[in-house]
Nucleic acid binder design. Structure first.
Lengths: 142, 142
DNA sequence: CAAGATTGAACCCTCAATCTTA
DNA sequence: TAAGATTGAGGGTTCAATCTTG
């Protein structure tokens, strides 16, 4: 009820912020370092392959990412320029397709991603109960 | 040891990612919505006031944020244009000073920040032991 | 009109190259 | 030279305004 956080509160807030930053940065750095893909790149290519077998309507892709149209539009423009995806206008929308180059890259990125998540999140938390941790995190998104 | 995460691992990873995103976005949205300050803006103004009583060497400011010089330089350029800080070159460095407008803004932002951290992080975690949670998070940054 | 999509501006971040000066 | 700082390019995000077309 005060305007400042108590020492206890500060401690938890800083630990949270620091951990969130570190994990995000480390995982992203591993993927970028070995494949050149950014986090958004990885998310999009993964969905194209897993959800659409290589192609999805732009609209569905946006929904699956929980992204606004404009964000996806900008992102796809850059990825298209880098040769990772192609766009084709069809009746009532746009179909996004992964290119052969995109497929090669995502295939290389997947194991790196799994290893990074293990190294930077799962391993450090191994002495805690996985279900407990998952449940605690779920409390933050309700 | 496989190239894909197990269902269990996926579950924790996604919960983590989602929670990290949500908390960051919600706190940032509250501050931006009521003061116009971004997260970086808030961090810099806070440090200028708390660590330097309104002014700091740019170099010290960078160190306290754990930022690279160029990042701070770009950020300060924008904040200077928005009238939040001023820069003055001195022997062997630059002094960054908070402006009166900057001080008014950070004073308004502080209670909003405390309330946001409580609402979006501390409250949702209230049924867990604060020290336990803090310790778990600390495991991720070692 | 309404849904799908794009665009431009302003912000943010990183890297590498450069400038400045003690 | 080495430390402090800036710059430019290329990516990323958000918002509001604007196509485009069924």
């Amino acid at each position: 009820v005060t305007d400042r956080l108590s020492d206890d509160e500060q401690l938890l807030w800083r630990a949270w912020k620091h951990a969130a930053e570190q994990v995000r940065e480390r995982v992203a750095a591993d993927i970028r370092g070995s494949t050149g893909l950014s986090d958004p790149d990885f998310g999009i290519l993964t969905r194209l392959v897993d959800l659409g077998d290589g192609a999805l309507r732009q609209n569905e892709l946006a929904a699956s990412m929980h992204w606004h149209r404009s964000r996806l539009s900008h992102q796809l423009t850059r990825m298209q320029e880098r040769g990772l995806v192609a766009r084709e206008t069809v009746r009532g929308g746009v179909i996004v397709t992964i290119t052969p180059a995109g497929r090669v890259t995502i295939d290389r990125a997947r194991p790196v991603h799994a290893a990074a998540v293990r190294a930077h999140l799962l391993e450090p938390l191994s002495r805690f109960d996985r279900a407990d941790v998952t449940e605690m995190l779920a409390a933050l998104t309700r």
